[in-house]
Design a protein around this nucleic acid. Structure first.
Length: 486
RNA sequence: GGGCUGGUAGCUCAGUUGGCAGAGCAGCGGACUUUUAAUCCGAAGGCCGUGGGUUCGAGACCCACCCGGCCCA
């Protein structure tokens, strides 16, 4: 590695930096820099104003003209030009400042705001201080950082140089804030439940296992927080939610990441209808936070998130998109239909898995507009209440945008006896690796009485993908994990 | 796990039929008092992902492996 400065120069550069910017440091965007003379920009342009400004940020461009130079300074609010000249700074200060100044350096500068002949908002620098010397160069100023691997491994450079990446993570923050605000408005209380759990549950997934030394036993990183949030319904909190990381020790692909962010919300004495309203309100708030309206153009396509969204029953969807009626067809016929479509399915599979495979490959890709898929066959969903009008189905919906599942909601099962039976059936189920252990502590809580409730899970990463037009879930996760470079 | 595809200078990328390793930007030296991707002159900068193989000769061809990307499972 070739450093930018000799050791001696580096020591000089290091001698200068001190502290950060003052509390009254204006942002680098144009309006702020003009602020001292906001009412008289002509005076500012003439350099007649007395007020001095201090700015601080990263140098992203330098244009050396001899005894005068220009530098572009960027901070979180925008960019402003520094005008450096030996007339103002003094010949020796000017030349020594320019000697150590590089693109990438963090500096603070003070001087008079003005506009150049071409109208560029600038600061006529009187003092320039090195705040942090960049020993390595920034990626190419036009091309930015393109190598996808480097963009993941050095995300700070990606964000620093690629505008789309920077805006995407700002949008993510705005989305999460909007979700919180909307839940707050609906009277939900945010809680924190264990990340490390002695028994994992609330879903069907392979957990990460870790050792809890102080308790002398293995623990699991949560695959869901559902069973703890339900304990809080037993406790008497009627509207609770948590936004947290869940961990599933499974594959990585375009829409799956082992460490992902989930929003779960539970509302006592609500049913699926309540969840339907809630999820539409949440997504509408998120879309509005990013796009200013519930109708948005995402990736060149117009998507309307304005509630109410279309609702389609599971059976009807399968009929419409695959011509299959799950009420009349047996496992063998479903498997055959799957094979006809090139799917690798086996009639010996559990019916739920057959149905799920068909839905995933045939129906879900067609659900591009925001859609609520409802009335799931009971065998696919062991934790939901059955529909009152037809016990073959359960009160559940998933919702889809762009063919991608964004979330899931149930009318939650609150009968402790039924729940125990279903959990035990699941625990002794044929797919041992995916079956979850029975959480006796959770069942004990249920036996004390959990109010009937609606529950909602929303994949935050995927929502951000949809709203920011990201093709891959890693594009919305700041620091995705990669294999070691060997 | 399978198919396709990529890894060359700090960054973005060329590299022809197998024949001296290239450009732009960044960096370095110099000129330049209002630039906006400043301009101009000059000199540098390489484990061509790794390891084998073929060949007089490999960045290129063959094999294996490592790290990515896309698609499929």
């Amino acid at each position: 590695m070739r450093w930018r400065l000799s050791t001696r120069e580096l020591l000089t550069a290091r001698a200068a930096p001190r502290g950060g910017r003052g509390a009254d440091t204006p942002d680098a965007d144009d309006s702020e820099a003009d602020a001292p003379d906001a009412n008289d920009s002509e005076a500012a342009a003439r350099g007649g104003g007395e007020a001095l400004v201090d700015v601080a940020g990263r140098i992203v461009g330098v244009r050396r003209m001899g005894r005068t130079s220009f530098a572009t300074l960027r901070d979180a609010s925008g960019e402003i030009q520094l005008f450096l000249t030996d007339k103002v700074m003094g010949a020796s200060a000017y030349s020594s400042a320019l000697e150590v100044l590089d693109v990438g350096d963090l500096v603070s500068a003070g001087g008079q705001p003005f506009r150049t002949r071409s109208g560029e908002p600038s600061v006529r620098v009187e003092r320039l201080r090195m705040a942090a010397k960049a020993l390595r160069p920034l990626p190419d100023k036009w091309g930015g950082l393109q190598d996808p691997e480097a963009r993941f491994r050095q995300r700070y450079l990606d964000i620093l140089t690629n505008e789309d990446a920077r805006r995407r993570f700002e949008s993510r923050s705005a989305i999460v804030a909007a979700l919180r605000a909307e839940l707050d408005e609906h009277g939900f209380m945010e809680v924190e439940t264990p990340t490390l759990q002695p028994v994992y549950g609330g879903g069907s997934a392979t957990p990460f296992v870790t050792s809890y030394d102080a308790l002398h036993r293995d623990y699991y990183l949560r695959i869901a927080d559902e069973l703890y949030l339900k304990r809080l319904l037993v406790a008497g909190y009627e509207r609770v939610f948590e936004i947290c990381k869940d961990f599933r020790n499974e594959g990585i692909d375009r829409t799956h990441c082992p460490e992902f962010t989930m929003l779960e919300a539970y509302q006592a004495f609500a049913d699926l209808g309540g969840m339907r309203e809630l999820v539409q309100a949440l997504v509408a708030a998120a879309v509005t936070a990013v796009h200013g309206s519930t109708e948005a153009t995402i990736g060149g396509r117009r998507v309307d998130f304005t509630p109410p969204w279309p609702r389609v029953a599971y059976r009807e969807a399968l009929l419409e998109h695959a011509g299959l009626d799950l009420e009349t067809l047996g496992d063998a016929e479903l498997a055959a239909a799957g094979r006809d479509r090139g799917l690798r399915v086996d009639a010996a599979w559990p019916r739920a898995k057959l149905l799920d495979t068909l839905m995933q490959h045939v129906v879900e890709p067609a659900l591009t507009a925001p859609t609520l898929l409802e009335r799931y066959p009971a065998e696919t969903t062991p934790l939901a209440k059955r529909c009152e009008d037809d016990p073959r189905y359960v009160d559940r919906f998933e919702f889809f945008v762009d063919g991608m599942e964004l979330g899931n909601a149930y009318t939650e099962l609150n009968d402790p006896i039924d729940q125990r039976a279903r959990l035990q059936a699941q625990a002794s189920g044929r797919e041992g690796s995916e079956a979850m252990p029975v959480d006796e502590d959770f069942l004990l809580a249920l036996e004390h009485g959990m109010p009937p409730a609606g529950g909602l899970g929303l994949g935050v990463d995927r929502l951000v993908m949809v709203l920011t037009g990201a093709a891959n879930i890693r594009d919305v996760i700041l620091f995705p994990q990669l294999r070691d470079r060997s």
